[in-house]
Design a protein around this nucleic acid. Structure first.
Length: 728
DNA sequence: GTGGCCCCTGTTTTT
DNA sequence: CAGGGGCCAC
């Protein structure tokens, strides 16, 4: 085994070897915080003789947990299976399955994914006769989720407005539905774990006694429930080691509160605070740019990032004509880098929204350059994948009505809306669940008390499906997961259903086969583990360890990673910062942190890219340069690309794709226009309604008008295209 | 009961 | 532009 403390700088060394107690390590990007965490665990086990089973370490992603475990095993030269290491959600699920006796569900509960959660809310809105236009399922669910993360139950839910009252009523019912389905949602994993520990002192003590040392990574992104969990789990030995960086807190919308970092110090007055400022990752230019961006935020612990890697190349700022040119530029630039010997695997392209990946993917496909897209959603969100998972979930937990509803008529087996209404009616009249009726029909057929009320046809199709379910459940008792998977495929004729011979159909079937491969991986661990894994995978978890090809990922997914070359695209107002953050300074500060996280992923090269116009909803609109770019000192930058003034032609008729922006020659020759608008003027736009002119500029033969609209915020328009009516 | 067509709406981020 | 829901014809 290698020397654990080798190659640590004095600050890192101090953190790794800190004595027992509460330690807060504030670590800038690239300062080796994951390393500190890993080595501290190794130190505790090897030097302090702590049993691995007495250590609890919480990471942000499953992937981070996996990597940490294998690194530890390499360092210590032995397995550390007993070490409690994983994400909050995975650890909570583990504790809850063990202690299910004390909870209002069985130990084989299912975990509802985001889609399931919203569709449950949607169903409840319908049931309660609430207009889902006024109260969108998404926003109602968001309120419920926020409440849960703040440990607020439906009874304590404040309902001062009608909107909140609606949310409260849905919340109440939502909980009933989950219980009836023997299900929990993501937030429940945390919520019920906290309740379990709070309501059962003996259980709390059991775990708190076990965990002599508790360690947590990415502490700035913990929410109330997670914070409480940490306090409970460390309430006996009081050894809590937290590592984090306020500047990298990017999950506020999920209830995370970077002020937990401050709370830590006030809750544990004897806590020791350590700072890691030496950056081992980036060049000084990258760090200076990052620093310039983040310094605009208040309420943070000032840190001075420094690097000994030299200043490095300047940050490139590329101004593309439009979003197609943006993607084309990025891919061409990457081709050049690769031709010059750079490794594709060290390159990443980051963006604010997933939708932005599409044009980039298309550009990659055109050049035949391979790429990697990070995103679990891409696979697990597929209809065919969700279908198969629903079958498996139903076998695992037949009371999972969400899954049942999903696949009761998939592939079509004659159970249409009429039969479903009858089925629901029967369930209601007999105070039974749909599953009870199906299983009864499936085992007893015509002898079943439920046979009579249905039409003959209805009863028989339901009985057939019930019989399938019964058989699968029996089969699952004695057979392996892959066998069950194949049995379901053949019993349902799923291949014929998905694979219609078209390319798309084949793609769908390939996805099914990919899931099947995954099922094989879980042959030993079984169905429960498989489903839990499927429910808890994150986007980051899908990132290959050593990708050969450039990686496309969201800024959120980039947290904790590093690349030689980083492109951040879409540096336009409305995208980064996202328009949803315009009204709330807290949200704006978070957008800034998100940008900061992106910048600090870069080791050597940072390329910032924006597009002068961009299609949203299929329509082209002019964009305004991101406000964050103004914060980066000019002497760190190298500006490239085409500054698009304004063209007097319809942007829709422009060529879509052009190599490095040779398009723009056409302005200039026409005579300048007279300005018609001026700042302060009130105007009306066909689509966006009332607005006020903020700025106007004459460029070439046209005039660019920047207008603040009441409905959609800032827009930049070409006067010749947008019909702006002036209000006196 | 199913499948196809048309209209509408809506884009953050994800454990 | 695209995915979902509603409506209509078989």
């Amino acid at each position: 085994m290698i020397d654990i403390l080798r190659r640590l700088n004095p600050q890192q060394h101090e953190a790794v070897t800190s004595p027992a107690g509460q330690i807060l390590v504030l670590a800038g990007p690239g300062s080796g915080k994951t390393r500190v965490l890993t080595q501290r665990i190794a130190y505790l086990i090897h030097e302090q003789g702590i049993k691995p089973s007495h250590i609890l370490a919480v990471t942000f992603t499953n992937k981070a947990a996996r990597e940490m475990r294998s690194r530890l095993e390499r360092m210590l030269g032995r397995g550390v299976e007993a070490l409690w290491l994983g994400t909050f959600h995975a650890l909570c699920a583990r504790i809850m399955r063990r202690e299910a006796d004390l909870l209002p569900f069985d130990s084989n509960f299912v975990i509802m994914d985001a889609d399931d959660q919203v569709s449950i809310v949607k169903g409840i809105l319908k049931e309660l006769n609430i207009d889902d236009k006024l109260h969108s399922p998404n926003s109602v669910h968001g309120r419920i989720s926020n409440a849960k993360n703040a440990l607020t139950g439906p009874n304590e839910f404040s309902a001062r407005t009608y909107r909140e009252e609606v949310a409260r009523r849905v919340y109440e019912r939502y909980e009933e539905v989950l219980r009836a389905n023997n299900a929990v949602d993501f937030d429940d994993l945390l919520l019920w774990a906290v309740r379990l520990l709070e309501d059962n002192p003996a259980i709390r003590e059991k775990y708190a006694k076990q965990f002599e040392y508790v360690l947590i990574d990415e502490f700035q992104d913990t929410n109330q429930a997670q914070y409480d969990l940490l306090k409970h789990l460390s309430s006996y030995h009081h050894n809590l080691f937290a590592v984090g960086d306020e500047d990298q807190s990017i999950y506020r919308w999920r209830g995370a509160d970077y002020r937990n970092v401050l709370r830590f110090m006030s809750d544990f007055p004897k806590a020791e605070k350590l700072l890691l400022e030496r950056n081992y990752r980036s060049t000084q230019n990258v760090l200076d740019a990052a620093q310039a961006v983040i310094n605009q935020n208040r309420a943070r612990t000032p840190k001075k990032l420094f690097s000994k890697r030299g200043s490095g190349p300047r940050v490139v700022l590329y101004d593309a004509v439009d979003d197609h040119a943006e993607a084309a530029y990025v891919v061409e630039d990457i081709l050049e880098r690769i031709a010059a010997g750079e490794k594709g695997g060290g390159i990443a392209i980051m963006y604010r929204t997933n939708a932005q990946s599409r044009l980039l993917e298309e550009a990659f496909l055109r050049t035949n350059l391979p790429y990697r897209l990070v995103g679990a959603q891409r696979f697990y969100g597929r209809r065919e994948v969700k279908d198969l998972i629903a079958f498996l979930r139903l076998v695992h937990n037949p009371y999972d009505a969400v899954s049942l509803n999903r696949i009761i008529n998939v592939p079509p087996r004659g159970i249409g809306s009429k039969t479903l209404i009858d089925l629901n009616l029967q369930a209601q009249e007999n105070a039974a669940t749909l599953t009870d009726i199906l299983l009864s029909l499936g085992t007893q057929g015509q002898e079943s008390p439920y046979w009579e009320p249905f039409t003959t046809r209805g009863a028989s199709v339901l009985a057939d499906f019930g019989a399938l379910l019964v058989n699968w459940r029996e089969f699952a008792e004695s057979s392996s997961l892959p066998a069950l998977f194949d049995r379901i495929l053949s019993d349902t004729g799923y291949k014929d259903y998905t694979d219609d011979g078209t390319e798309i159909g084949e793609g769908r079937w390939e996805n099914v086969m990919e899931l099947r491969r995954l099922a094989y991986e879980f042959e030993e661990r079984g169905l429960t583990a498989f489903l839990e894994n499927v429910a808890l995978v994150s986007d980051q978890d899908t990132l290959p360890d050593a990708p050969e090809a450039p990686t496309l990922l969201t800024l959120h997914a980039a947290k904790g990673l590093e690349f030689t070359t980083v492109y951040i695209v879409g540096l336009d107002e409305g995208l980064l910062p996202h328009s949803r953050s315009f009204e709330d300074p807290e949200e704006m500060a978070e957008e800034r942190r998100l940008f900061y996280v992106g910048i600090t992923r870069a080791k050597d090269n940072l390329i910032l890219v924006r597009a002068g116009q961009r299609s949203t909803f299929g329509r082209y609109e002019y964009t305004i340069e991101s406000r964050f770019l103004e914060d980066i000192p000019e002497d760190l930058l190298r500006r490239q690309g085409v500054r698009l003034g304004v063209r007097s032609v319809n942007p829709l008729s422009q060529p879509r794709w052009s190599p490095s922006g040779s398009v723009l020659e056409e302005s200039g020759s026409k005579e300048p226009a007279e300005p018609r608008y001026k700042a302060g003027m009130r105007v009306i736009h066909d689509t966006w309604g009332d607005g006020m002119v903020v700025e106007t500029r004459v460029l070439g033969s046209d005039e660019t008008v920047t207008v603040m609209f009441e409905t959609v915020g800032l827009k930049r328009l070409a006067a010749s295209i947008a019909k702006l009516e002036i209000v006196k």
